[in-house]
């Protein structure tokens, strides 16, 4: 009797759901053949001799010893950090302001924010040239106002890339933050008032800490995305500001150094994955 009762409680042996296997098979195959295999291949290239195919650590050694690679990786990381900070500084107040609007206005503002997804990134990037160029909207306005006599150089330097990338990435921070802010129970803030707290204290001790996990998670997300940016730096940097993605383009298309491109890819992926694990951890904590 006892044994049978225990058997009833224990989970039943899992049966194979063949219908599900069948439904998932195409996607699994597609990812396996066109994503995982090339990725492993890339990893393999990074440690094998292009001529003989023998395993070697020479490429990683070259990468570590060459100042050019490390400088570009470093520059990319700094750039990504700058983009992340600027996105957070602009995005947090924007999300906060949006979450405080009347519901109908919130929908309008959110539509404006999401709208950036509807326009191709290429079009948007070229639009910045029109706006930020020497004869562009911003410079003409600045000159008309007499704030500057010579046009300010926004383009073909890091400033241009920073502006362009922040514009592209802003929604990735604003939307999750907005969602987190709307979810905060209004009564927490009201009760804090009745306990005697002023608006500044309520913001920093109640509101901000409650949005912090989401802020951190989306900031890391933005950081990861900005590490691999190609089009925006290529167009707005005018090829003068080399970042990782552009360097890989050069390595593959100009110098045919596939093995070095593979090394850079592996390094970039290692950085991304470790950041991603932090992102996941933060997301679970925030939920």
């Amino acid at each position: 009797m006892l044994g049978r009762a225990a058997g009833d409680i224990s989970p039943r042996r899992r049966r194979v759901r063949w219908d599900l296997v069948l439904l998932l098979a195409p996607l699994a195959l597609l990812t396996g053949i066109f994503f995982d295999v090339p990725l492993l291949n890339t990893a393999l290239w990074s440690v094998s001799d292009p001529a003989t195919g023998a395993l070697t650590g020479a490429h990683f050694q070259e990468f570590a010893q060459s100042a050019a690679y490390t400088r570009i990786i470093w520059r990319t990381l700094v750039m990504a950090l700058e983009v992340t900070l600027l996105t957070a500084l602009l995005g947090y107040p924007l999300a906060y302001w949006t979450s405080r609007l009347r519901p109908r206005l919130q929908a309008v503002v959110l539509a404006f924010i999401v709208m950036t997804f509807w326009v191709s990134i290429l079009v948007r990037t070229y639009a910045w040239i029109v706006i930020l160029g020497n004869g562009g909207l911003v410079n003409r306005t600045l000159q008309a106002l007499g704030l500057t006599t010579r046009p300010v150089e926004f383009l073909y330097n890091e400033l241009g890339i920073l502006i362009g990338m922040t514009n592209v990435l802003l929604p990735f921070l604003v939307l999750p933050l907005y969602a987190a802010m709307v979810r905060i129970d209004r009564r927490l803030l009201q009760v804090a008032q009745t306990l005697g707290a002023g608006p500044t204290r309520i913001f920093w001790q109640i509101f901000f800490p409650l949005t912090l996990p989401t802020l951190a998670a989306s900031a890391i997300f933005v950081f990861i995305l900005s590490l691999g940016f190609y089009i925006t730096p290529a167009v707005l940097g005018g090829g003068r500001v080399p970042l990782v993605a552009n360097m890989m383009d050069l390595l593959v298309n100009r110098f045919a150094r596939w093995e070095m491109a593979a090394v850079v890819s592996v390094v970039l992926m290692a950085v991304t994955l470790s950041l991603y694990s932090v992102y996941q951890w933060l997301r679970e904590r925030g939920a």
Partner: peptide, 12 residues
Amino acid sequence: AARRNVGLVFQS
């Protein structure tokens, strides 16, 4: 509210 010295317990 902050200057009323009133203790409030919400249902939630």
